[in-house]
Nucleic acid binder design. Structure first.
Lengths: 137, 137
DNA sequence: TTTTTTACTTGCGAAATGCAAGTGTTCGTG
DNA sequence: CACGAACACTTGCATTTCGCAAGTAAAAAA
């Protein structure tokens, strides 16, 4: 088997993607890195939604294996690691953007956090370009 | 409570969306309707990935409650129902498209099913417009 | 009238999730 | 250098969800 498909990957491109981030947390971890600029385990743990620590560790491993996330030692601190997104991970920017736009259109919650949405609305092309370049949007 | 958030919905637009389709199957069901034109329970059950019947029933209920999916009696058959996408559901077209484009770029599987991808590549704007209009792309 | 089709529901073992607590380095402070 | 705090996890265990198989009910076909 040259390219082993998982149990669920039928060969459909949508299924391939869901195989990687089709769960409750993976995309939120990617969002924390791409949009909020989270770089350490602690920052990811303290995200808005409150992922539990074992799940976060597992997801980071999976995303690393999938080539979405990188993990390196922090040169300035022996106990810290720096997580980051690969180009493959940063290229999920359009997916995050379209999801956010869709939610902006249909989420009835008046208290929704619109920071990211505002950025996209103001300058979608620029926001996407910055995310793809690994900068904070 | 006017707008009850689920356990995980932090108010972030990405979290709102994942609350609705952030699982293994929901987006595949939506894809089957939006891309493949599946309209009955049986057609959805016979999809590429092989969802089990209890999960399909549960997801259809949830998606109906979320205002993504409609369910009506088939006027031509007393035992059949016709499932469809609402505008909210059809407006997920850009999300499906971006996911497919991303997979097309990064999926190493040479046997990947590229039907949808080919359509997007040939005419993205038209494909999206047809999906939004409820036609088969 | 019997069989088949369609759309589910139910039961149950297996797997994933969530929470709390614990572990092993490393760094700052006295 | 000792000691506590910080960081990045791991482990255990109860709860929830999933997945497969089998069963059910009503309508249509034979």
């Amino acid at each position: 088997m040259t390219h082993s498909r998982s149990k669920y990957d039928s060969g459909c491109p949508v299924a391939y993607a869901l195989d990687i981030f089709g769960d409750r947390w993976s995309l939120l971890v990617i969002r924390d890195m791409a949009v909020k600029g989270a770089r350490t385990y602690g920052e990811l743990l303290a995200g808005w939604e409150g992922i539990s620590t074992n799940i976060l560790a597992q997801r980071l491993k999976q995303l690393e294996q999938a080539g979405i996330v990188t993990k390196e030692k922090d040169p300035d601190s022996g106990r810290s690691f720096v997580y980051g997104l690969t180009q493959k991970g940063r290229d999920l920017a359009p997916v995050l953007i379209e999801i956010a736009l869709w939610s902006g259109r249909y989420n009835p919650d008046p208290d929704a956090l619109t920071g990211f949405l505002d950025k996209i609305s103001a300058d979608r092309t620029g926001t996407e370009a910055r995310m793809r370049a690994g900068e904070r949007p």
